[in-house]
Design a protein around this nucleic acid. Structure first.
Lengths: 361, 361
DNA sequence: TGAATTATTGGAAGCGCTTCCACAAAGATA
DNA sequence: TATCTTTGTGGAAGCGCTTCCAATAATTCA
């Protein structure tokens, strides 16, 4: 049915080896021969058979991307960075979006089939330890994004520094009683964001009070969701009486902040006059909601992830690296800074990138 | 390096054919033999070599998805439907997101490589005629979503009926001077949405006036973007004086409507009191912006697309089909209906699906 | 001019699997 | 008991390519 290199060889009066060399641009073929073979290939509209090439060459030029079910802007943006970089180097992406935890192992398992893919990008989830071992054993390149494991390259956002900066910003606006709305502390980002909040308070000489940290019902996405944000804010507003009233809130994610804004509206609480808010992530909605937030450089993270994976495929032995991105403070309406000096959507801190070698476990 | 069926055969004391039959669940193997082979496979942690299987079996269990650079919620949702259905039937997705027109042909070409994929899903773009011919010639299954070609299965949204319903809704609220903000009429959705608007006016005995149709600067995405919407609304507001003032606007997409809302806010025009708005698509932002809109059943479209492709791979000869989805009217704040009867986010019309056979060209 | 390189070329081997055909063993039928 | 089925099994062939190695032709060097 299809045209094979044997057909080309016969038609051009050369051997199959020569045909292969011509098609793949190898040296040591005379220009005339190459021209003739390519002409024949064109005339017969030859298409290489992808699977045969892959079987013979032992490279697939394909990687798999395992990502939480990406109904959210963060992943779309990161994925765009990955995709653009992949197109650049001619690699295909097989997409596995995980909507149920069991699928993590299922998809990792598929990726581990010999010859299925040349590498794997793994996003924002905990890498099961047993699979970590299998990746090492099979020498399959793996890069973690928004996740960490000592044996593999990873790319992270400095969550602690981010919420540190967010809290400092509220402090600099004069707030002294600052609460936090967080998601389940079983997740690392939630822990780290809490730590940054705490550190900012303490370095300002304020007391960290756990009763000012509102943890939403976990539910979907470990509590990083709108409903949890709405409910948390409702509780915060309800209990916010007395002399030591809270005047500002650091929220662990934008989706929660969006929910929180809905709660303020419902309770006729004015933002930012009665309550200053700051989120985390800078999702698309944040701009529309005029939410002050910490922006993650999503596109860049995706692009860098793909670059790291490419590099790793070339140099399997190199030590694992960790790159951290520092989120940018994006000042909009909800923090109240504009009440003093009207600055719209400006990045106050330059984006900063740290690279470090991690001792291989 | 890897464990092959030869290793299993030797270890289990059987032939390679038997091993293959055991692994693939073929009949005509004795239960004892099967158990023994599977035990050995497990012990040696055998992984089939994907490419070898594909080469030998001539099936890849992979399809490619060619989609416009999906920074928008519509595609994310559709893709989620595709992905879930693909996981269901055990098919891998190779994602090609097109950010530059030239990439359309590049990716289509890749998909046409023999043995690369078993089928293709093509989204929201015009299928180049030359490639249509090549798909037919190579008998490569192809399903179009939000696009149409007589030779292939397609899934569409009834744009005309959608904006007809949108316009009727505004008419039913008593508006008589209704404008439209549209994108470039070189695209089919824009044309169809215009036609529905016009039809609704005419069936209500009103005169269709082209000077009430504001077409934004094309720019990104043929004018389906926020800036175009903002600019269009600004022009509309600026020219909206005199006795025949416009009181409502049908907007061709939600992203434009979001831009339009920004323009109303900037001009201190109240929505819906001074200006009733209705969008199209029901993107995520629409809910937050309380935008009345026509919802496209995105997830279902994705799922159906994958189902059609699967069916087509099984029955290559069947005639091409066209399925149209009718968008739902989602009533929120911006149309002003709530000023009369407070109905929040309710679907007024049931979702409806039409199937029709299309004569193969 | 002859020997030694160097530039090309042909094609066998092999990637790891599926599938088919041939054949043996075990029942079933007469 | 002899013959026909059925069931189970082994392994060659082949999927279409890349990559060697050996062989040949062209060129250079002394």
């Amino acid at each position: 049915m299809g045209v094979t290199i044997y057909d080309l060889a016969r038609e051009a009066g050369v051997g199959i080896g020569t045909v292969s060399r011509c098609l793949n641009g190898h040296p040591h073929v005379s220009p005339q021969t190459r021209a003739r073979v390519l002409a024949v290939a064109k005339r017969l509209s030859y298409q290489p058979h992808a699977q045969a090439q892959r079987l013979a060459s032992r490279r697939t030029n394909t990687i798999s991307v395992i990502i939480p079910s990406f109904t959210n802007y963060f992943f779309v943006q990161v994925l765009q960075g990955v995709q653009d970089q992949a197109a650049e180097v001619g690699v295909d992406l097989i997409l596995y979006s995980v909507s149920h935890p069991a699928q993590i192992e299922q998809y990792l398992g598929r990726s581990l089939h010999r010859g299925h893919v040349d590498g794997v990008l793994f996003f924002s989830m905990k890498l099961p330890e047993s699979y970590a071992a299998r990746f090492e054993q099979m020498h399959l390149p793996l890069v973690l994004v928004d996740a960490f494991h000592p044996s593999f390259d990873s790319i992270r956002v400095q969550n602690k520094e981010g919420s540190l900066a967010a809290t400092r910003h509220l402090l600099s606006l004069g707030h002294r009683a600052i609460a936090m709305i967080n998601a389940s502390l079983s997740t690392q980002p939630a822990q780290e964001r809490l730590a940054g909040y705490r550190m900012a308070l303490e370095e300002a000489g304020l007391v960290f009070r756990m009763d000012r940290v509102v943890i939403g019902e976990a539910g979907k996405n470990d509590g990083f969701n709108r409903e949890a944000g709405r409910e948390s804010m409702r509780r915060l507003i309800a209990g916010n009486t007395g002399a030591d009233r809270v005047t500002a809130v650091v929220i662990a994610s934008d989706v929660q902040a969006i929910g929180a804004l809905e709660a303020t509206r419902a309770a006729h609480v004015r933002v930012p006059e009665d309550f200053a808010l700051i989120g985390f992530d800078d999702i698309e909605l944040a701009q529309y909601a005029e939410l002050t937030t910490m922006r993650q450089p999503m596109y860049d993270m995706g692009q860098l992830a793909m670059e790291k994976l490419t590099k790793r495929m070339k140099e399997p032995g190199a030590p694992a690296t960790l790159t951290s991105f520092l989120p940018d403070l994006i000042v909009r309406r909800t923090c109240g800074a504009a009440l003093r000096a009207p600055v719209e959507g400006t990045a106050l801190s330059p984006q900063w990138e740290a690279e470090a070698s991690v001792p291989t476990a």
